[in-house]
Design a binder for these strands. Sequence first.
DNA 1: GCCGTTTTCGGCCCGACTGTTTTCAGTCG
Length: 568
Amino acid sequence: MNKKKIINTLETIATYLELKGENPFKISAFRKAAAALENDPRSIEEIEDVTKIKGIGKGTAAVIHDLLETGESSDLTSLKEEVPAGLPLLLKIPGLGGKKIAKLYQELGVDSADSLKAACESGKVGELAGFGKKTVEKLLKELETFGQRSERHPIWQLEENVKEINAVLEAIEEIERFSVAGSFRRVAETSKDIDFIIASAQPLVVKDKLLAALSYTEIVAAGDTKISVILAGDDAANADFRIVTDAEYPTALHHFTGSKEHNVRMRQIAKERDEKISEYGVEQPDGSVLTFETEKAFFNHFDLPFIPPTLRAGHTEFERHADIPHLVTLADIRSDLHMHTTWSDGAHTVREMGEALIERGYDYAVITDHSHYLKVANGLTPERLEQQKEEIYAFNHAHPEFHLLRGTEMDILPDGSLDFSDDVMSSLDFVIASIHSSFSQPQEQIMERLHTALKNPHVDMIAHPTGRVIHQRDGYNPDMAQLIAWAKEYGKILELNANPYRLDLCVEHLEMAAKAGVPVAINTDAHAIEQLRYMDIGTKYAQKAWLYKDMIVNTWSFEKFMDFLNNK
DNA sequence: GCCGTTTTCGGCCCGACTGTTTTCAGTCG
């Protein structure tokens, strides 16, 4: 039995219970059980007694056993008989929750978006107690776009929005400090909306200036301290703003950074000490409210070190916080091993990239333009690769304090061969091998291609090992356990591609690589100078897999890195 | 439904906003 199916079943039961208007704590018990199972690192076969896991008791364990024995959950089956199949979908309509949907169904027989629309138009919804004119108007409006807007947006789509909003907020002088919060700050792969926390003594002025400067299509809510809009643009995201006083800012930022599970744990910790956490501070037993200068001071108050937003998942961060000082941070990074220049499909020259790398404070880096198979990217022939050498040597001559290495991002061809000969590869300092074609081959064939690359002594690293693009394509589905085993056997590096649209390897795979002792490189794959900043996203993403600095090759000194290449 | 070194019953994180109310329920994060 697939653990994922068990988790999904528990969550689905929670959804159905919600539509029945069940006790909210019972509903959340099923969600907690699902989360507890998901956070447990063991496979379902490895777990002897599920009730030993905190959050799983008699009821939820019965569902799990049912699934393990019959492949189905009889509880879910009977819920599905009671609750029409169309109702769970209606939960996605903003403003509708379980109780309202239950009422609409029981009183009016509403069981789909279409029947809801008809009931709204006929005026029947407006006559229900608790529903009024505005609710009907809002529902009809939501129904127009129902099913068209994405629920979650990949962070590479939201990055632009965040940059624009940052610029808007920078320009408002009444703002003392502000920050993006929410899943974007935690560097989640996808995000439902964008949250900002703003410190200001003049919230109303800030609200007016903010709404005047933002480009939005709709105001969802605009109170004295909370503003929510749908941003302009196709498939646009929501942006939420909270305005608090400067004293409240650190606790508000913490609160709205989440995750929800992390906050629940923090509040439990506070409660054990007779304290109460809210976004405005920490309430003491005598009713007074403590505030803090910084998030760090807030954590310290609870005898915890500063927990980076990336780690705030609500499970291991409270037990493993002694490891936090070992985790990789942007400040540890001394090089970037994957980037493109105008020689292939990059926007800047070797010299421009090199100067930008020095500007970032790195000690060394590798220029890795595409190889000739990739014609759409103007990939380099062995001859052009040779010509590029002059430019790289000239740069090194002009910057003796820095080491710009010669490399390539070489294609692994569909037939399993490599795009350069051993001779060409051996003339380079660093060879990346990667797949850019024939993604749909069967797994054995994909693995065959990767194996050829990994066992070649001149290849140093596999880039973006799964080829996924978040929310767009799944990649070529390699057998990751096998790939990691080969990387270990042949002494190769696996990449964490820091481009926010890739983030490949993903957290789960990074954890596997770390467990196997395979070195990882965090690279930007920059095609322009401004993409070198993706290193920040990459190091934060690596923290989510609890990767130590020592495991990351580009935190090593130039000497250590060269030693590794020469002795691998 | 889950949990328990004050507990096997009575809690379960906390607050803003909206729309419907006439003091609050529902939704959302």
